[in-house]
Lab assay of single mutants.
Amino acid sequence: ESETFDVELTKNVQGLGITIAGYIGDKKLEPSGIFVKSITKSSAVEHDGRIQIGDQIIAVDGTNLQGFTNQQAVEVLRHTGQTVLLTLMRRG
């Protein structure tokens, strides 16, 4: 069981404050995608409180990250504006 949710964030001096990890899993058993690996102290993400380590980032400002490499996803996140809309999925 999984839930998908949107989080809109405004960057602070730390930026968004997440590091991400790309993961290619076994299609049947484990998900592939871009996941939140860590959250920086005092960052926008930590202050917001809704995003957790292990959440999958589905889209950034409407750009679907399906099939993106870790590096491609980093580039998408790097080129966002001051306000960012993240679409995430959390597995229950």
Rank of each mutant, 00 (worst) to 15 (best):
R90H: 05
I51W: 01
A21T: 15
T80N: 00
T87Y: 00
I58C: 06
M89S: 13
I39D: 00
G62R: 09
T83P: 02
N64D: 13
G54I: 00
G22Q: 15
L86S: 00
I34S: 03
T10W: 02
L65Y: 00
D26R: 09
E30L: 05
G17T: 05
L88D: 01
E3D: 12
V74P: 03
T19V: 09
T80V: 05
N12E: 10
V7D: 00
I18H: 00
G81W: 06
Q71C: 08
L16W: 08
V84M: 05
Q56H: 05
V7A: 06
E46D: 13
T83H: 12
G25L: 06
E8K: 13
A73F: 07
T19F: 02
R91P: 13
V7P: 01
T69S: 12
N12M: 06
R78D: 09
T10M: 07
E75W: 03
F35H: 07
K37V: 05
R50F: 03
V76I: 12
A59E: 07
G33V: 04
N64L: 10
H47G: 10
E46C: 07
R78N: 12
S42P: 08
K37Y: 04
I34F: 13
S2Q: 10
Q71T: 12
R90W: 01
I34H: 11
D61W: 00
E46G: 09
V13I: 15
T87M: 01
F68Y: 13
L86V: 05
L29I: 13
T19K: 11
G25Y: 09
V36L: 02
V76T: 10
Q72F: 03
N12W: 05
I24S: 15
H47V: 15
G92R: 13
Y23N: 15
V13S: 15
D26G: 11
K28P: 13
G81A: 03
Q71W: 06
K28I: 13
V7H: 03
G15C: 05
H47D: 15
I39R: 00
G81K: 10
F5K: 02
G17E: 06
I39A: 00
L65W: 03
E75R: 08
K41P: 14
Q66G: 10
N12F: 05
Q72N: 07
N70R: 14
L85T: 13
G54V: 00
N64Y: 10
I34V: 10
K41I: 05
R91C: 09
G81I: 03
N64S: 14
K28C: 13
H47N: 15
K41S: 11
